[in-house]
């Protein structure tokens, strides 16, 4: 499903502040696996995730996702690729704080001009699933951390993605909410999705439904 071949990522190449974030990474993740990327801060987890999601391109090497060479795609196609395949849960949630939950959840679908009825139904099921139905109209900035987290998950699922990428999803949550998040991930895995979670939260390190744990250090695996 996801394959990284000899990936190197260098920031600010050939400049005084050159930064090698990833070095020669080789990686294979199969369909419907849950992978945990662990490593200290600055070890390159987020960088790797953004390469897989085609948000940026590797300096060297090749990434193949679902048969597509995403590392070589043109910008336009990468957007379509993300829209159709990837669900994102960001480190800081990256919700738009001045929009309400509903508006945040539908963001990924807007450019493809969704059918209103189907969309509303889909959003309602998601809101129900994460028990935030009563927060549908609330501005995101007025929600608690846990609620924001759930809005972010709902948003990552609105396009029915095959792959879910979560970057430090529990960094701002207490233990109870983190455990809840883990349960949700388990559910999502049961729905045949491929999941990658980058984290240094020890709660993730001995999950029974986790398929791979990849340890990162200074851009190496």
């Amino acid at each position: 499903m996801i394959e990284c071949k000899n990936i190197t990522k260098i920031f600010n190449q050939n400049r005084h502040n050159e930064q090698i974030a990833l070095k020669n990474i080789n990686l294979k993740i199969k369909k419907n696996e849950l992978t945990v990327l662990r490593g200290a801060s600055g070890s390159g987890k987020s960088t790797l995730l953004s390469l897989i999601a085609a948000l940026s391109r590797p300096t060297k090497g090749e990434i193949i996702v679902d048969g597509k060479r995403v590392s070589k795609m043109l910008e336009n196609s990468t957007a379509m690729f993300r829209r159709e395949n990837i669900g994102f849960i960001f480190q800081k949630y990256n919700l738009i704080s001045t929009l309400n939950s509903y508006e945040n959840i539908i963001l990924p679908t807007i450019p493809s001009n969704p059918n209103e009825k189907e969309l509303t139904r889909h959003v309602d099921t998601l809101l129900e699933m994460f028990s935030i139905t009563n927060k549908k109209e609330s501005l995101v900035k007025n929600l608690s951390g846990g609620e924001q987290q759930r809005v972010a998950i709902a948003r990552s699922l609105i396009n029915n993605p095959k792959i879910i990428i979560a970057d430090e999803p529990t960094a701002n949550l207490d233990k109870k909410l983190s455990l809840e998040f883990i349960k949700t991930m388990q559910k999502l895995k049961q729905q045949n999705r491929t999941i990658i979670i980058a984290t240094h939260d020890p709660l993730f390190f001995n999950l029974n439904f986790c398929d791979n744990i990849i340890e990162m250090k200074d851009g190496h695996i």
Binding site: R57, S71, K72, L74, E75, N76
Partner: peptide, 17 residues
């Protein structure tokens, strides 16, 4: 050249938009 994967090609794509 769609087969090229250098910065110039990516830049051209953006400019074409």
């Amino acid at each position: 050249n769609v087969n090229r994967t250098d910065e110039r090609q990516y830049g051209l794509e953006k400019k074409s938009i």
